[in-house]
């Protein structure tokens, strides 16, 4: 479960990076309100990135990095939204590693 969540966040990071430059508007010169459309896309995309990053800090901060054993809370409530089942799944995953 936790591993799936990690893969999901990695995918989000890749998509955020991949579309920060609007490749699909390549060669396009349409101007809206004084700026090229591709620049508006970029501005909007960066705003979106900030929102996504904020959500990440609320929901998943520590994923892929923090490895404390079960029951040892990280202290500032970052893992809210994850029930006890996720926590045990997480330590099981850690236990698999060499």
């Amino acid at each position: 479960m936790r591993r799936l969540e990690l893969v999901g966040w990695i995918a989000v990071a890749v998509v955020l990076s991949a579309l920060a430059i609007p490749w699909f508007l390549w060669g396009d010169a349409t101007v809206v309100a004084g700026l090229p459309v591709w620049l508006w896309w970029h501005i909007g995309w960066m705003g979106l990135a900030s929102v996504v990053f904020y959500l990440f800090t609320r929901r998943a901060w520590g994923i892929g990095i923090e490895t404390e054993p079960e029951g040892d809370s990280s202290g500032d409530g970052t893992s809210n939204g994850n029930g006890g089942t996720n926590r045990s799944a997480r330590s099981a995953t850690n236990g698999d590693r060499p």
Binding site: L16, S17, A20, I21, H42, M46, A49, G64, I65
Partner: peptide, 22 residues
């Protein structure tokens, strides 16, 4: 602007977590 936005706004921010937080 796009190059700088991608490098500093996205890539560096992701590294801020991946390298920085660790």
């Amino acid at each position: 602007i796009l190059v700088m936005g991608l490098m500093d706004g996205i890539i560096f921010a992701v590294l801020w977590y991946v390298i920085g937080y660790k």
